[in-house]
Design a protein around this nucleic acid. Structure first.
Lengths: 148, 148
DNA sequence: TATTGTTATACTCTATAACTATA
DNA sequence: TATAGTTATAGAGTATAACAATA
């Protein structure tokens, strides 16, 4: 067996794995005629409706950036702007049935691809991997990265 | 302890981890005044020079897309176009000393951030994680995803 | 004729700043 | 005055198609 440098090897492997998964996400979104961006928009709106301002904050975007996202998604029939009854300046964004369907289909396809990626890993290693990965993700969520 | 659904949990965890790492890459590139795209360009050119056609193939991009990448990187002094002595149609792209320095600095910073992400994982789990991750990446490289 | 690379054009994504309408 | 959202503008990143220069 060749000698290893575990620390660097791990960082490099995780970076490669991350690129692989990101590329998978991009490919599957494209197969459904969407961008990763629009998938992210639909995913947020599946759980609840948002005003433009709140949604921009939720996604860490500028309001003007979001206007374009919503314009394009609305023109594809994936979301709708609805006037707020309480505040005539505000509008609320809702996902349509088609948007919801697409979002779920893409989520399932991505999950299936990731399952396929790890299909060669033994069941016990997979369990261990799952627990380590969720530990890392949870720790990162507790200690968020600076926004610069 | 709550019940778990290991398979789905793993796919979801890997997706979240992938987004986390991708965001880290984006942040560090931005701190150095670059985009993820330009980091990728410099990384490819650190190992060897390319003609525009070969580089476009290497990066899975169109030639016309690459023209823009190289224009912007060249205007920042990170790469240079050099005429090919063998073929007067062709030009070869070389990374400059500054481009090489930036590329290495970003690589080190990204590695350090990923190390920090997994710093809470025990040494034995880290070793196990490294071997599983490289197994997954190697398997994916042997069985590439469709390009659609 | 075929190939290398650029240009023209169009669209998505992102941000800043100015603006409209409402509160 | 302050807030919700859009518009104007600019620039990066992506693609297709047409093009010039060279092979």
């Amino acid at each position: 067996m060749p000698p290893r440098i575990p620390a660097l090897q791990l960082a490099d492997g995780l970076l490669q794995l991350s690129c692989l998964i990101h590329h998978t996400l991009d490919r599957i979104a494209a197969e459904h005629g969407l961008s990763v961006i629009q998938v992210r928009l639909l995913r947020s709106l599946r759980d609840r409706e948002f005003g433009m301002f709140d949604l921009a904050q939720h996604l860490a975007l500028r309001k003007s950036t979001l206007t374009g996202w919503v314009d394009r998604a609305e023109s594809r029939g994936l979301v709708v702007r609805m006037a707020s009854p309480a505040d005539r300046r505000a509008s609320h964004i809702h996902v349509t049935a088609e948007g919801r369907r697409l979002s779920r289909a893409i989520e399932e396809a991505v999950n299936a691809e990731i399952e396929k990626l790890v299909s060669g890993v033994s069941a016990s290693d997979r369990d261990r991997l799952a627990s380590v990965v969720s530990q890392v993700v949870a720790a990162a969520a507790r200690d968020p990265q600076p926004k610069t």
